[in-house]
Write a protein that binds this DNA or RNA. Structure first.
Lengths: 128, 128
DNA sequence: CTAAACCTTGACGCTCACGTCAAGGCAACC
DNA sequence: GGTTGCCTTGACGTGAGCGTCAAGGTTTAG
């Protein structure tokens, strides 16, 4: 299948697929006229990337999962590097939940017209 | 006080202060040589902006609070527009908490080597 | 023959809140 | 007078993940 069909079947755009390729996440063999040619396996890779992005992972984060699938494993998260990303992300999410809970308190306090109780300093921390 | 001192006292940079001015959040009278001159009130404004940014608000979000302080109110969140922003942000934070909790489940499931239970579709929702 | 619908690479645009020069003016001290 | 340390405006850079042209080649339908 060519890039347009892959994009349609994955519910994304050709631009995104070419971008994944530029990032080394996707490869494609070329037909004689230079067109990219993909197989079902590539659709699988794209879906993996999409589902991981949907939970807030960066493309960089998806790299180990894609590599895992390409290495022949049936699921992208069965390799050590992937699981390490899972663990790191879980820690980030936990920190984010904690932080957002504090922010929530701040907002509630503000709405309740109380002292502007300050949110605990978290030194340039970014929530997903 | 000039811009350098204000920046130092607020724990920020002159670049940030000039940026706030370019966005209409901060004003300054000029001395004869063109230097910006600030008062204690401006320090107050900057601190308001900072504490709001610290809880994940955009500069755009801080606008009503700054306007409220400039209107002479003793706290920036005592005006209707400010309180509306609080309410909106609270809703966003609540949605984000819900979403992150689902993401957490996804990650835990992945680590537990279960089926890649999909996170409920939330159609391009961004957490702070 | 021509138009439509694919495909190619390359390059700039977008958001946000500034960071980082660049080139120069002003003020104070040695 | 030279140096240091402020200040000014202006303009480009940053990161993430693409969107959006631009300019052109390929294939198929009419």
């Amino acid at each position: 299948m060519r890039i347009g069909e892959l994009a349609k079947r994955a519910g994304t755009t050709t631009r995104a697929l070419r971008f994944y390729e530029s990032q080394g996440l996707l490869e494609a063999r070329r037909t004689s006229n230079g067109y990219r040619e993909y197989g079902e396996h590539d659709l699988r890779l794209v879906r993996e990337i999409q589902s991981l992005q949907a939970v807030g992972m960066s493309l960089e984060d998806t790299r180990p999962f894609v590599a895992c699938l390409r290495a022949g494993h049936e699921s992208g998260d069965s390799c050590p590097d992937s699981r390490e990303v899972y663990r790191r992300k879980l820690a980030e999410v936990d920190a984010c939940l904690e932080r957002l809970t504090a922010v929530r308190e701040f907002l509630l306090a503000g709405l309740a017209f109380q002292d502007p109780c300050l949110v605990p300093e978290s030194e340039e921390f970014q929530c997903s």
